[in-house]
Design a protein around this nucleic acid. Sequence first.
DNA 1: GAATAATAATTAATGTCAATAACGATTTAT
DNA 2: ATAAATCGTTATTGACATTAATTATTATTC
Lengths: 163, 163
Amino acid sequence: MKPLQPGIPFLLSQVGAHAAARYAERIAPLKLKPYHSGILRILAEGSGLTQQALCDLLGMFPSRLVGVLDELQRMKLVERRERPEDRRTYALHLTKAGQEMLQRLGQAAQEVQEDLCATLSAKERAVMFDLLTRMVEQQQITPAVHPGYRQMDGGCGAPPRSK
Amino acid sequence: MKPLQPGIPFLLSQVGAHAAARYAERIAPLKLKPYHSGILRILAEGSGLTQQALCDLLGMFPSRLVGVLDELQRMKLVERRERPEDRRTYALHLTKAGQEMLQRLGQAAQEVQEDLCATLSAKERAVMFDLLTRMVEQQQITPAVHPGYRQMDGGCGAPPRSK
DNA sequence: GAATAATAATTAATGTCAATAACGATTTAT
DNA sequence: ATAAATCGTTATTGACATTAATTATTATTC
């Protein structure tokens, strides 16, 4: 009878899920879900991306993306611009409102971080950031892309609803 | 245009989801999913728990738990003992095979941790463990209980599935 | 240059799984 | 003893992700 103490993988999954939940409820008043947020962030620097390219990057199904983009477009946060060179594709762009929304989302994330790291000193937060970033690199996780976009079980450590 | 750098909440969610996925695929050959694992761990020290008590602890729906326990019982890892004092309730207990399985699960978790923390020194791992543990305490997260059991959106930062 | 294949986005259909509600059995309260 | 409440289970509903099929455009081949 030894390791009843939780390991780092579990703690990461546990705290990570908690952080995601907190962030989700924090941005709920903005009528946005976390996966909206992620797409806006990607589009902020990857402007002009095509839907398929975005699918490849996020690892999500095209049919899944359509609905999400419809929602974002309905909220005037994203627009699909026609491309003269290939008229079956759309170029995805953030609207002005989309950029402003991104600001608010960043603010929300910072608030959540403030709450989440309440007991951590500035130095400790920097250490945490460093360790996590190094993990992302070493594990070859695509930066700024959440694994949850990928299909699969999800395996969030709980009954799938997710995985 | 400022915070395009991911914050700690996102990093935690990202790495946490990744860790959960790695653990899930690691224990897949054992025909178990992460949420099975969590229940076995709870039952290891909370032996004799009733189903409803377990539901309250995990924050999951009773109807949801029934199926999971059926699976675990089919695998001979958990047994429902009848209670003389209250014949409508069952006392949940780990079988011998269940305890052995728990050992393997702990071993699997350690392997995942080894891979996940490959670039981290022993001291850094201890720091990571300490920071995460303090977060769990400060956020009043029930120790050893994954938030994913709870209902709600899941909001794992990606399309729910999932979730 | 017409026909065929291939690709992008969308839509429809399929399956899965969680949550609400209803049920039977047992216990506690009146 | 009758009624109300509780525990576990089952059935139904509903939401959502994935697969397959549609439509429209571009590229390739004969």
